[in-house]
Design a protein around this nucleic acid. Sequence first.
DNA 1: AACTAACTAGACCAGTAAGTCTAGATAAAT
DNA 2: ATTTATCTAGACTTACTGGTCTAGTTAGTT
Lengths: 239, 239
Amino acid sequence: MARLTGLVDWSKGYAVAVSDAQPVTRRTGGVARGRIDKRQKILDAAFAVFAREGYAQAGVDAIAAEAGVAKATVYNHFHDKETLLRAAIAASADQALTENLAVVEQLTERGESLRATLETVGIRLIQCYCREQSWALRRLLAAEITQFPDLLEIVQGRATERITEALADRMARLMIAGRLRAGDPRVAAEQFLALLTGPVEIRARLGTRQIPESERRDVARAAVDTFLQAYAVERPASG
Amino acid sequence: MARLTGLVDWSKGYAVAVSDAQPVTRRTGGVARGRIDKRQKILDAAFAVFAREGYAQAGVDAIAAEAGVAKATVYNHFHDKETLLRAAIAASADQALTENLAVVEQLTERGESLRATLETVGIRLIQCYCREQSWALRRLLAAEITQFPDLLEIVQGRATERITEALADRMARLMIAGRLRAGDPRVAAEQFLALLTGPVEIRARLGTRQIPESERRDVARAAVDTFLQAYAVERPASG
DNA sequence: AACTAACTAGACCAGTAAGTCTAGATAAAT
DNA sequence: ATTTATCTAGACTTACTGGTCTAGTTAGTT
């Protein structure tokens, strides 16, 4: 009866299910994971369908079909539709986080001009922000936040907050290195991100419009201009 | 059979239904509107329930109950659940727009210091942005945009876009008046808004956290600082 | 007072979807 | 070859809800 002989309470245990609830098979052998990649397939399909139709509208049948899997298999991996939602969102947030962190890491104090570095990082951050998956994640989160308030922690703890913090770290390094005027690195990070994503937000229309490459570059350049005018130590030759 | 003897196709006519589909009673008399304020009650209730539960989850019964009205009455005013959603969102967007425009209008070239004016306007804009209804509207829009793409035009045409444009107008005036460095007023408007709402967005956690008054003031001040350092004509005495 | 349009309460139908269950297929490990 | 865990297809139960309809009520207008 009990599927795990009572080792863990799975009824609400999304914290476990979310991170790595590997089915038993995975651990039995050495090479292992006979066809447990189905789990990932289900997660991907679930995210896609949830994003497209919304939680309430999304049918588990549809998710199973999109994953190329039987409905029972879905319930084999995830106890609940709700659990599935949390897992899918967590997985997507993790993915978005690593992408963003990789970009933030490129913001070092050494290297050519600070302006050029900021612009490159800016363009890449905008790229991340404009991924279809990113838009879907933000939309889905906004949609279901009132029904499942804990989604906020699942995502915020994995994405927005951590990215801002990582960027703040870099800003602090730049300030210490004398490349940026001293100030609150957290505010600097927030404002840099705001200058990048704010204009994008308006122009992208919640992700329904694809912003052309050139426009994204313009936004990044304008953002860096404004940012540097406020935070650069020596004034760049203007005009 | 046809409720309006075929004058208008009501089956999908949200453009009409949205703006002012007043029931006949309203026009029969002079003083009129016997109890047609029910329409507003329904709209308010619908927005509240849609925002709380999401479109798919929201039951028309629940909306009727919250409006203090029979279900049939809802269908008397609005042909469809879908029509009701559009109408409710449009009404809410209209309201948000007028509030925001009233604030933007306060940004004139005369008056004490430009910095003080910008700060006041900034604080008020943040206030508008943080209204529970504003958050609900943005969340709801994000939630249903994939299902009802036309919602975007209903809202964007009434809110975001118009506000940005109005602000850009003011920026242009300030540039012409020599109070701001000449440049693209549209970009200035976007960046000013971004500097205000970006940090608020992160801190408010999709509207689930109430930002204290002092924190909002800090954000506005920081935004104005950065903005003026980039756009002021003469450098403000720093330090 | 008579008329009329909007309202109410509640029954009702039809469609849909979460979650369970059964019986059988597949494939890794011993 | 046998065992064991997962998988599949699909029927099934249960519950909910959009929209309609009916019968009767309320209140403004003439």
